[in-house]
Design a protein around this nucleic acid. Structure first.
Lengths: 167, 167
DNA sequence: GTGATAACTTAGCACTCTTAACCATTAGGT
DNA sequence: ACCTAATGGTTAAGAGTGCTAAGTTATCAC
């Protein structure tokens, strides 16, 4: 089958390690410059929540962070008035997070602004470049979206159960 | 001419905004799990410095962060024994940062480990997917490597007469 | 020499992320 | 019913990143 060799994977890994942090810092700076959006995390959260309310645990695993981290982030957003904690009747352990009108408006504003900044950078791309970018992003999404992220006990990557991501 | 339309750029921007943070968190988690490497930033720094020593200002603009931030990061790394601050004879204002043997060893170790983790995730990719990934990363590099990063009024990206620091 | 500027450092603040420890609430087994 | 897990969240402590504003030296320009 046409799987990557170990060496190719290492090469690709090195590239990821080099490029992603750079992009990340840039994106974070854009969001910051866009005003009032403190962190990229909040943006993603707001996006996800604008689709439908979610419980805290789901949000945490969606973003690949620990529960306390998510709890903190949500607290920060609650203080900003962007989201609300609600306890459903069925199971009183869970906390549902829902966007407020304020939050929706903020998302709209920042989203527009940040995307315009980014779009400024991306506009010069020609069609093949754009295609490559989208393809690469798609692969990244497939690869990283399904990853359990933090594998508990040290020094062990599960060897067997890897899904194979066919294009 | 095949440039992106505004709409396409916005779409691509949205994807970047969605995917990059996710990848970033995953990568950070891998590095952390690889042991003793606190942050992706340190990794990149160590890589850059292993090529040749750099002055603080250059490091900052290389990574697209402010000077104080870089100063802090370097302080953290100095405490770990990975790098050393040195004052050159020519200009006693500048601080040259150089990797120590310890730092080089740490880079070796963590690099190997992190790349193996990442490679685990990337190995299942088939050839077209791999090609797409590399293509996308290439585009990202081109787009973001040249960007002054933070555009807010100050652009402390020194414009012209960069001195050349011959090693 | 005086004053501007360049290279860094320090301090204070806001945020992310972690683990460990701790409360609730619900589900299971006997 | 009862006691024990397991599940869902929160709080606390600690390390890191990143920022701006306000210093400190050292060098340059005149």
């Amino acid at each position: 089958m046409g799987v990557m060799t170990r060496v190719q994977a290492r090469e690709a890994a090195r590239e990821v390690l080099e490029i992603i942090p750079l992009v990340m810092r840039t994106v974070a700076a854009e969001l910051r410059a866009a005003g009032e959006m403190p962190a990229p995390a909040h943006f993603g959260l707001l996006s996800a929540l604008s689709v439908r309310p979610r419980m805290l645990t789901d949000l945490a695993s969606l973003q690949g962070v620990s529960l306390p981290t998510m709890s903190n982030s949500i607290s920060a957003m609650v203080e900003r008035g962007w989201v609300r904690r609600a306890v459903p009747q069925g199971d009183r352990r869970v906390v549902m997070i829902e966007v407020t009108a304020t939050g929706r408006a903020a998302l709209e504003r920042v989203s527009r602004s940040a995307e315009m900044h980014l779009a400024d950078v991306l506009t010069p791309l020609d069609m093949p470049a754009r295609r490559r970018l989208r393809g690469g992003l798609g692969v990244l999404r497939k690869v990283f979206a399904g990853t359990p992220v933090s594998v508990s006990r040290k020094r062990h990557r599960t060897p067997a159960k890897r899904r194979s991501y066919v294009s």
